[in-house]
C-alpha cells in the first residue's frame, strides 16, 4: 500500500492506494503522525483508491483520529468503496465515522 499526502488550505489530505490491511496499518499511523506533527491537525484520509480494508486498517484510523483530536483537530474519511463500507457497517464503525463523498466535502462546512 502506498500513502501520499498533500497539505491544502484548511486541511491535509492523505491518500492511500491499495489494501489497507494489517501490514499497511502501522504505515498509515506513521504518515498521519507526520502530518499532524507538521502542524496540520485537520486530516482527511481519502479512501477513493483503497479497495480493501480490514479491522487492523480501521483500528489504525481510530488511532489517527485520536492523534488528530489530541492536537486540536479532526480526522475524516472520504471516497469509501463498497468493501470498506461493508467493513464499517460490520464493526459498527459507521456509528463513529462519517464517510464523506470527497476530500473537499469532508471539511466543507467548517
Amino acid at each position: 500500500m502506498q500513502f501520499s499526502y498533500e497539505v491544502k488550505d484548511s486541511y491535509a489530505e492523505v491518500k492511500g492506494v491499495g489494501r489497507l490491511n494489517m501490514v499497511a496499518a502501522p504505515k498509515l499511523r506513521e504518515v498521519v503522525a507526520e502530518v499532524v506533527a507538521g502542524g496540520s491537525s485537520r486530516v482527511v484520509v481519502n479512501l477513493a483508491e483503497t479497495d480493501f480494508m480490514d479491522s487492523s486498517g480501521l483500528g489504525a484510523l481510530i488511532g489517527c483520529l485520536k492523534a488528530a483530536r489530541q492536537a486540536g483537530g479532526d480526522l475524516r474519511i472520504s471516497g469509501v468503496q463498497p468493501q470498506v463500507k461493508m467493513v464499517l457497517e460490520l464493526t459498527n464503525m459507521d456509528r463513529v465515522l462519517t464517510a464523506y463523498p470527497s476530500a473537499e466535502a469532508a471539511f466543507g462546512n467548517d
Binding site: 480490514d54 479491522s55 483500528g59 481510530i62 464493526t91
Partner: peptide, 9 residues
C-alpha cells in the same frame, strides 16, 4: 481487531 473495534464503538 474486530472485537477491539466493536468494543470501542
Amino acid at each position: 481487531m474486530q472485537l477491539g473495534l466493536v468494543g470501542y464503538v
